[in-house]
């Protein structure tokens, strides 16, 4: 058991070394990398990405996927902006409205997946288009610009290198970590992801696990959507368009297995940092942004390949599910 724990520790130790080594190398080549402004840029991107990456992570944990993650973020973002601009709601009420909407969207995904027994891929592909179409239909693809100053400030204020958004992102990361590692519903989610049949036979309710994971995913997407509004200083229906790949990349780079049962919150955070660092490095070295796409794709392939090897070495590979 302690050997296993050591190995597990060594897993994200490697990622940590990659992040530190990469940062050090970048700092040597480009000294301006270590300016507070630059660190703030990386941390802001970390704050936004880690929230929706965990939103995908909790779904990956039960072996499902949520293609509608970005669409929920988008719908909530414009609902949040619209509630403040058109309905003149106070900020807290608009935020509660946004959270509620994200909860409902996530619950719908979970309920449909649970009731139909179909793969979450096709269900969330359908709801993706419903949520996104609704967001675009309401706004006619126009952003809401009149965002209150307090919201804008939350997205732009920083103390030295530390952005204010860390105040929201860090508690979410810690809470998700505790939830998955220490709390009964979180453990049940991972158990279900590891082996749905065994979990059900040992008394874990499939309905509860599926509904919980999808709802949680909706809530996290909602938070990420509203944080993006604060950062962009407007609520545009383009929010969430580019979440899909990064939301899978970060947990997978962090060691998550797409068939479910395993999700490392620390690994996911480091995965997000790796992606943010690559982005920043390529910007600073003035490399074509499309190299980011290529690198990210290769990184996902490398990470899943490594996870596969590790499973084989640990001898924990579940019988290959071909269907």
């Amino acid at each position: 058991m302690s050997r296993l724990r050591n190995l597990l520790r060594a897993d994200w130790l490697g990622l940590l070394l990659l992040v530190l080594g990469g940062s050090a190398a970048l700092a040597v080549v480009r000294p301006e990398f270590l300016t507070p402004y630059n660190i703030d840029v990386i941390l802001v991107s970390f704050c936004l990405t880690v929230v929706y990456a965990l939103g995908q992570g909790v779904i990956i944990a039960i072996g499902h996927m949520n293609l509608a993650l970005g669409a929920i973020g988008c719908l909530v973002a414009i609902a949040f902006g619209g509630a403040m601009e058109v309905w003149h709601l106070p900020i807290w009420l608009a935020a509660v409205f946004g959270l509620l909407l994200g909860t409902i969207c996530g619950f719908i995904n979970g309920w449909l997946t649970w009731r139909s027994g179909l793969t979450s891929f096709i269900i969330t592909l359908a709801t993706l288009s419903i949520f996104k179409g609704t967001a675009l239909g309401i706004t006619q693809a126009q952003p809401f610009y009149r965002i209150p100053d307090a919201v804008k400030a939350f997205g732009s204020v920083r103390w030295g290198p530390l952005p204010a958004m860390l105040l929201l992102a860090l508690p979410i990361v810690i809470a998700t970590g505790i939830f998955l590692a220490r709390m009964i519903p979180g453990r049940q989610m991972l158990a279900y992801g590891g082996n749905p049949n065994a979990a059900e036979l040992s008394g874990i309710s499939r309905a509860r696990v599926v509904l919980l994971a999808h709802t949680l995913s909706g809530v996290l997407a909602a938070v990420a959507g509203m944080m993006t509004v604060a950062r962009l200083q407007n609520a545009t229906p383009a929010i969430g368009d580019e979440w899909l790949i990064a939301s899978f990349a970060a947990p997978v780079i962090g060691g998550a297995v797409l068939t479910g049962g395993h999700l490392s919150v620390v690994g996911t955070c480091l995965g997000v940092l790796v992606v943010a660092l690559i982005n920043q490095a390529l910007v600073m070295l003035a490399v074509d942004p499309f190299y980011v796409q290529v690198l990210l794709g290769l990184l996902i392939l490398g990470a899943v390949g490594l996870n596969r090897l590790r499973e084989a070495r640990l001898g924990t590979t579940a019988p290959v599910r071909l269907s």
Partner: peptide
């Protein structure tokens, strides 16, 4: 799913 998620990024890039 995960293979083509990665290759869509690589091919297009």
């Amino acid at each position: 799913f995960v293979v083509t998620l990665a290759t869509m990024s690589v091919f297009f890039g």
